[in-house]
Simulated scan of single mutants.
Amino acid sequence: MSFSIQNPFPGIDFAMSLDRRVLLIDNRVMELTITTLVHLIHVDPDVNMARFYGIELQPTLFGEVSVLRTWGRIGTNGQAMMVTYNNEAQAADALQKLEKKKRRRGYVPVGE
């Protein structure tokens, strides 16, 4: 007994099905021109303070850029918040403002 494969839908070209089309699409990941990762800490043993603050830029799937902020007590997972901007310049500006604000409040880069 032999079997022959026949196309049950003669008007559809299965050679160009959606599964095959995926291979033809350019799947480049958005790359940021500025790769900024800021890790700040504020340690004051006199008042039992040991805090961290992290800021970084993350591309989104829609061509925007998010500023991811993490903060909390050193040794914990802390909290996180993400704010999305239309372009990298706006996000980088927001990151610099946040870093400047935290440095004024006594945070210093890790290792300083």
Rank of each mutant, 00 (worst) to 15 (best):
T76G: 08
T76H: 10
T76S: 15
T76M: 10
N77C: 05
N77F: 06
N77K: 12
G78L: 03
G78M: 09
G78P: 12
G78Q: 08
Q79K: 14
Q79Y: 11
A80M: 15
A80R: 15
A80W: 09
A80S: 15
M81T: 12
M81R: 11
M82L: 05
M82A: 12
M82H: 10
M82E: 13
M82T: 13
M82F: 00
V83T: 14
V83A: 11
V83R: 12
T84S: 15
T84M: 12
T84L: 12
Y85H: 15
Y85G: 06
N86E: 13
N86S: 14
N87L: 02
E88Y: 03
Q90W: 02
Q90K: 10
Q90A: 11
Q90F: 01
A91Y: 05
A91W: 02
A91K: 04
A92N: 09
A94L: 01
L95R: 09
Q96T: 07
Q96E: 15
K97M: 03
K97F: 01
L98N: 01
K100L: 14
K100T: 13
K100Y: 13
K100F: 14
K100A: 15
K100I: 04
K102I: 00
R103D: 01
R103C: 03
R105C: 03
R105Q: 14
R105M: 07
G106P: 03
Y107P: 07
V108F: 10
V108D: 13
P109W: 06
P109C: 10
P109G: 12
P109E: 12
P109V: 03
